[in-house]
Amino acid sequence: MSSVKQISTKGSDVQKFFNASNDLLKDVKTVFVFNDINNKMNAFLVTNDDKTYTFGGNFFGVLGLGHKNPIDKLVLNKKLSQISLCDFRYSYQHCVGRTADGKVYSWGYNKFGVFGDNRRNDSLHKPKLNKYLKHEFVVDISTGFWHTLALTCEGRVYQFGDNTLCQMASGIDSKSISLKPKLLDAFDGERVVSISSGAFHSLALTESGHVYSWGSNDCGQLGIGKVPAIRKPTPVIVMGLKVAKISTGFDHNLLLSREGYIYTFGCNECGELGQTTKTTEQYLPIRLNHSERFVDIESDNSYPFSAALSESGDYYVWGMSRQHDIHELNTKPKHCKAYESFIELFLEEHRITQRAVHNFNGNKNLHKRLSVQLSHQINISADNVITK
């Protein structure tokens, strides 16, 4: 049994922990923070010696410890240690991790086949390697509510999980569950370079800048008009549009063009499209009316929230922001105070990192912001120690 200094949540004690030279976080290289469906913070911390620690609400067992009990102190997750974890994704009931050598692990709740391990059950699982993808080098992963996508270095897209709303696409029975990864070969011969999943739909971006969508379309999240759910990847067509980046929200989407314009479509009940229109459903992409051009976009597939970075280095947010449990609604882009990254923005506005944070110790602001979030969410006494 090893012990490390504890995290206290009392103001200066938190900051002292994050600043202390001998504390664990001084050795952390990657951090991933997310809120579960009970709005409880959860986190994974990977150290330079490749040990993975975790704590949080653990609803549905999303910490990968084999149970669903809340964890109020950092615990070593042996199954996620010494495997070179470099990326994480969280969904409604499970997490997916990707390693530096392109392997995929899943853990949490597997009722809908989201592990892709040819099994479906209600039990809570510790992290498990996806043996069906072990011969592929996976470079990106994306999770919807009950489905998972994996993108390989050669541009192949695999999918597994629930298909009730056509999330699986490409000829799979609309009511079935895909228990093993299935290759999605439906992009007109184009190489896919990016994937992004909403709750019940998905997008893929090709090397030539084309976007494909499939899945649920109840509020226009496919961007192809007012049609039923689609089980085959279908081109999202805007005349002359070449896309540089895609980002999905719960049931809305952002597209960033190579010229720096943002297009949005899907649900707009909380202003997440950033449009002046009062419609709650947008079935075709529409360009964001803004004087600036943009270089990056980001959204959250568990919440109606959108963010963008302009060419001038300014951050903008719209939709529903969740600041210290106060829900603030912005129906058009709102200029934010200065941030150094989307990670800082999401920690402040949304209490999550959204993506895995690398070079964590190279950014003092991230230390500070994360310590504040810990003080709001985690109840760890000054006498508790990190064990096993």
Rank of each mutant, 00 (worst) to 15 (best):
N363R: 01
S381G: 04
V295C: 15
S375H: 07
T276G: 09
D314H: 05
L284G: 00
I352P: 00
N363T: 13
V357A: 08
E348I: 15
W318G: 03
E272I: 09
V295K: 12
A338G: 00
F360S: 01
T277L: 12
E292W: 00
N361M: 03
P304I: 00
Y339L: 04
I343A: 02
S312H: 09
H367R: 05
N359F: 15
T280F: 08
H376Q: 05
N289H: 04
E298V: 07
H252T: 12
N289D: 14
S371W: 01
V357S: 06
Y315T: 02
F346N: 02
A338D: 03
F342G: 08
C270R: 10
Q373M: 11
E349P: 04
E328K: 12
S312V: 07
Q377I: 03
E269V: 10
Y315M: 04
R351C: 10
F342S: 05
L254E: 12
T331D: 15
F360K: 01
L284T: 04
D325W: 07
N301A: 07
H252R: 06
E272Q: 14
G313V: 15
I343G: 00
G274A: 09
A356S: 15
D325P: 07
S312K: 10
K334H: 14
V317I: 13
Q282F: 13
N363A: 02
N365Y: 03
L255V: 12
K278R: 12
Y316I: 02
H335Y: 07
Q275N: 14
Y263W: 11
L347G: 10
Q323N: 13
Q377P: 02
S302M: 07
N379R: 02
H335W: 02
Y283R: 04
L254Q: 06
S291V: 06
Q275E: 10
C336A: 05
G271V: 05
E269C: 04
C267Q: 06
H252K: 06
Y261I: 05
E292M: 06
Q323S: 05
K332V: 13
R293L: 08
F342Y: 06
L374R: 01
F265Y: 15
A356F: 05
E311N: 03
Y315D: 10
H324I: 11
H324E: 12
F342H: 03
Y316M: 08
N253Q: 09
F346M: 09
M320H: 00
W318M: 12
S341K: 10
H324D: 15
R293D: 14
C336K: 07
E272H: 05
Q323I: 14
V372D: 02
Y339E: 01
E348A: 12
S291Y: 04
I352L: 10
Y339K: 01
G260V: 12
E344P: 03
L256A: 13
R322W: 13
N253C: 15
P285Q: 00
F342A: 06
T280Y: 03
R322A: 09
S381H: 08
